[in-house]
Design a protein around this nucleic acid. Structure first.
Lengths: 235, 235
DNA sequence: AGGCGCTTGTGAAGGCAGGCACAAAGTCGC
DNA sequence: GCGACTTTGTGCCTGCCTTCACAAGCGCCT
């Protein structure tokens, strides 16, 4: 997991990070008509241990019935409320490059309680154009009407990310999702979560390398071939 | 973080997850001509505490010089080696939707030790077309030449993700990065890291809601407005 | 050559998260 | 109406990660 920051209202950060997974699992169960689920079943659907699931849910209150399980609809509502999903949250995507484009068109946000409301870019050629049904604006235009509860998504090159973050903070945003591969400095009270694609791959590479090392030197040759291919390409 | 799995070779999972961040910070320092850095400076650049940084680096060995600091070039090499980045890793992206497209075009992979080598999709209309300089193939074609050390990136809809994962495992892949919002079941020895964009936003929503609650009921009204707007849109 | 100041590397302590196991509590069958 | 069965909620323990604090080590200055 990326960083699990300080817990609020007594709910551990690790638990908060898992609630969306439970919510997803519950949505799947509800779609198939299940109306009651045991911690064992739900845990399997969510990919965790049942004891962990029960402990997580216990932080929300006692919404289960002993001997029976959890009411799917009720539990869904409770988790959604805990996550603040009883209303949609507005999302502004800053940076309309490859990634920003894809995010703007990504349907997964709308179905999970979020509405992409603003698309922002600095490039004059992009400002004014329409992407995914929205008109691209610049940061100044966004700053004129900073809505309360806005979540900022930074999809700019890393060089621009800090200044964008500064401006977001300035206009009162205190939740930022950062796709730019860099460290953002923000004041206390502003929550930054980062998604770094290359970092994830590098972590996988570590495991891949060490899994390979355990197979002995023979298995290592395959990776060396990759290295050779690289040299060909760069020479 | 997503899950920090079992450590190998004694390096804690939490440390492995931070090594890429250090690597990035070192690259930045090297670009500005710095050749020696103290743990304090590097920690600041990486957004961590210096004690944590030193402990992390100590797992790799003693590459620092007391009273001086760390040699930037040397430390970079050591971390890169530990992560297995002395050679490029091949990456196959499965699912050429919005996200898959953006990932294929994302330049951040190539500059960090990865080469997108295969683009895969099931749609006959897409197979054979060219995206970002590569020809899209289908899973069968990928299976004919499963290269050792391949990392699979799943960018399909969630309904297809499990079957894609099964096929990847079948062809010997044991490192998977999953963008589909679902839980993947894989055998032991296969490493799955997941990136779920909506989950990240939901975690932010939790913090946003509770940060707001602390400001009192007045501040809560703004969010309710958003809820009203939603009802208008859905009615 | 010797001492001084700076920085690393690490033992120890504290805190958080995960897993186990069981008592509490509710339902179902008879 | 009562007992047996099922499943939740949770206290305790264990292990990992983080933080603190300091001794060890290195270079530099005198």
């Amino acid at each position: 997991m990326t960083d699990a920051p300080a817990a609020r209202r007594g709910i551990p950060g690790a638990t908060v990070a898992r609630l969306p997974v439970y919510l997803r699992a519950l949505a799947g169960l509800a779609a198939t008509g299940v109306d009651t689920v045991s911690s064992e079943e739900l845990a399997e659907a969510a990919g965790v241990r049942s004891a962990k699931l029960r402990k997580d849910l216990s932080y929300l209150g006692s919404y289960g019935v002993r001997g029976v399980g959890y009411d799917v609809v009720r539990l869904r509502e409770e988790i959604a409320r805990e996550l603040g999903l009883q209303y949609d949250w507005s999302v502004a995507i800053i940076g309309m490059g490859n990634l920003g484009h894809a995010l703007a068109a990504y349907s997964g946000f709308a179905t999970r309680g979020f509405r992409v409301t603003w698309l922002v870019d600095e490039d004059p050629n992009l400002v004014g154009s329409r992407i995914a049904g929205l008109t691209v604006i610049d940061m100044d235009a966004l700053a004129t009407q900073p809505p309360a509860g806005l979540i900022g998504v930074i999809a700019t090159p890393p060089t621009a990310a800090q200044s964008v973050a500064d401006r977001l903070v300035e206009m009162g945003v205190h939740s930022i999702l950062n796709f730019a591969p860099c460290v953002l400095a923000v004041p206390d009270g502003v929550e930054v979560r980062k998604v770094d694609l290359a970092t994830e791959l590098q972590i996988l590479a570590f495991h891949e390398q060490h899994a390979r090392a355990e197979l002995g030197p023979l298995a290592d040759l395959a990776a060396v071939e990759v290295a050779d291919a690289r040299q060909e390409a760069t020479s």
